[in-house]
Amino acid sequence: MRILLIEDDPILGDGLQVGLQQAGYSVDWLADGALAADALANDEFDAVILDLALPSRSGRQLLADWRDAGQTVPILVLTAYDALDDRIDGLDGGADDYLVKPVALEELAARLRALVRRSQGQADNCLRWDGIEFNRASGILSIDGQVLDLSAHERQIITALLERPGQTLTREQLASRLYGWDGGPESNSLEVHIHNLRRKLGRQRIKTVRGLGYRMAQPDR
């Protein structure tokens, strides 16, 4: 799951980025409101964590601009403003959730999962595709009831593929899911992860769309 984090406090921003990465999310962090405005236009994120008090452009303004532009990405407002009116304004202004600082990383992660799940029209945390069941909360993947052991990166890739089963994801999309803007260690590391996933799931479950990317496929029986 790829998250855009917009928070101007360096210590909190760093903590949220590292903490969410520990929980298996790919997190891109911006501290400036004006820079964040363009980030959503040019990149794909599963959810946004937005602080309201930002330099250059306030979080409220960003929220309003994004919603006016038709952005439907789930936005979680994380702020120090705790008054009831602030919460109501935030939610009415287009936020999907409103959390007051400080917040436990686990709760933040759970709320992000819930937001993404809802935005993808799923009832629970489980992604299912042709006998594969992946629980996003616990990170456990099973095929026909048999649990597989996956690395964090493999989990990211299979989540992305299972969220849009049948739809092709480009290598760039998958790489950004894995590493955000940091690029990642090597250009072929994605292929390594795909190779390992195929080994665990079965070769035919992840199909290579030549020149484009990858998609989930049903094995020939």
Partner: peptide
């Protein structure tokens, strides 16, 4: 004052959780 203290407090709390779960010494 409450607002101003909330953000560093949130940073402190988050970093403590990060430290508790850090997989390696560097983190």
């Amino acid at each position: 004052a409450g607002h101003e203290l909330r953000t560093p407090l949130a940073g402190l709390r988050t970093q403590i959780e990060v430290a508790q779960r850090a997989p390696d010494a560097q983190q």
